[in-house]
């Protein structure tokens, strides 16, 4: 098992803030909109450096999506910023009609996704956003795993023409990917090559999948470990290549099982390479208040759950 280390834990939202700030300096067409969560989204630096290109919308997310769509008509590249819940479910029709169907070059930056938002509880812990967004034709869906990757993703989506949903979160997680990585939309990152099982993880679950793979390796199980930062378009080739070798798969994500990464992988495999699969995901349930760690444990999104799923699926081969 390849060894992964990190020097510090950082929040992915700060990776977005750093990326946006850099875009502000390098791309004059980049503009930012925020619905009263500038600090939470780490958009402060952009706001301070480029006040003329920063639009404080107030608590009016539907209006924000429409204004972003309109700004693209004048050649701007708008990044909207609010929590993942208010970036998707609350404004689904605005995104569907004014952005996705209208082919508008809007980047929907969504923070505080999933259970790890923590104490605010289920009203704010959206676990359906990947599903909502991936169902929309034209929409690219990205869920990077750490600070460095979120920053790289932010820079990359500005160069991609078309609507993008960029999902990240609140808690500090190990920052282990390369600071100067080349982020390629739609390209899986193979973290370890193995032969007994494929583990495919996204977002905050990637580090937990690394921990799980290390433990499995100690037990003599060789893990092919893939970080899927782009859920749509999915890197079909990388997944099929891996699963053809290992013949079983575990998917791991901080999202509902319905509509998430696991669903996308299952759909791919059922068509091209039917394979036993186990899902580490929230199982048709809302979240609740608690610390991020407590919630990840209670809702079975922890390292141990990935290990158990792996051992179970290997037996199903």
């Amino acid at each position: 098992m390849k060894k992964y280390t990190y020097t510090e834990k950082k929040d992915t939202r700060s990776g977005f803030g750093a990326g946006l700030s850099e875009l502000g300096k390098t791309n004059p067409n980049v503009v930012a909109l925020c619905a009263d969560l500038t600090g939470s989204l780490k958009m402060d630096a952009f706001q301070k450096d480029h006040p003329e290109r920063f639009f404080q919308i107030g608590i009016a997310e539907a209006n924000m999506m429409g204004i972003a769509a309109g700004l693209t008509i004048g050649g701007k590249i708008p990044f909207t910023g609010t929590f993942a819940n208010f970036s998707t479910g609350r404004v689904y029709d605005q995104i569907r009609q004014s952005i996705a169907y209208s082919d508008k070059n809007v980047k929907i930056a969504a923070s505080h996704a999933g259970l790890t938002l923590g104490e605010d509880g289920a009203t704010h812990q959206i676990l359906e956003d990947i599903g909502l967004m991936k169902m929309l034709p034209n929409m690219v869906v990205i869920n990077p795993c750490d600070y460095n990757q979120t920053k790289a993703a932010t820079l990359a989506v500005a160069k991609h023409h078309g609507p993008v949903y960029l999902r990240f979160g609140r808690p500090s997680v190990p920052n282990f990917t390369d600071a100067n990585q080349n982020f390629e939309i739609g390209k899986a990152v193979v973290l370890n090559e193995g032969s007994d099982i494929t583990i495919i993880a996204t977002g905050h679950l990637v580090w937990k999948a690394i921990e799980a793979a290390e433990k499995l390796s100690e037990k003599g199980i060789s893990v092919d470990l893939i970080n899927i930062h782009t859920i749509k378009p999915l890197d079909n080739e990388a997944i099929l290549k891996s699963v053809a070798r290992t013949k079983c798969v575990v998917t791991a994500e901080e999202h509902q099982r319905n509509g998430g990464l696991g669903d996308s992988v299952a759909q791919l495999l059922s068509q091209h390479l039917p394979t036993p699969q186990e899902f580490v995901a929230v199982n048709d349930s809302f979240g609740e208040s608690g610390t991020p760690d407590q919630l990840m444990t209670k809702y079975k999104l922890d390292t141990i759950n990935i290990i158990e799923a792996a051992e179970k699926v290997i037996k199903r081969k």
């Binding site: 639009f55 539907a62 209006n63 924000m64 999506m65 429409g66 204004i67 972003a68 769509a69 309109g70 700004l71 693209t72 008509i73 004048g74 050649g75 701007k76 708008p78 029709d93 605005q94 569907r96 009609q97 004014s98 169907y101 209208s102 082919d103 508008k104």
Partner: peptide, 30 residues
Amino acid sequence: TTHEGLPGVRIASGSLGQGLSVAIGAALAK
């Protein structure tokens, strides 16, 4: 819709209430 490339159309509309926001965005870009 813009989706079929009809000249003269700059936004899809039909689901009501969205056009003023889009117009404001276009006005800000101007």
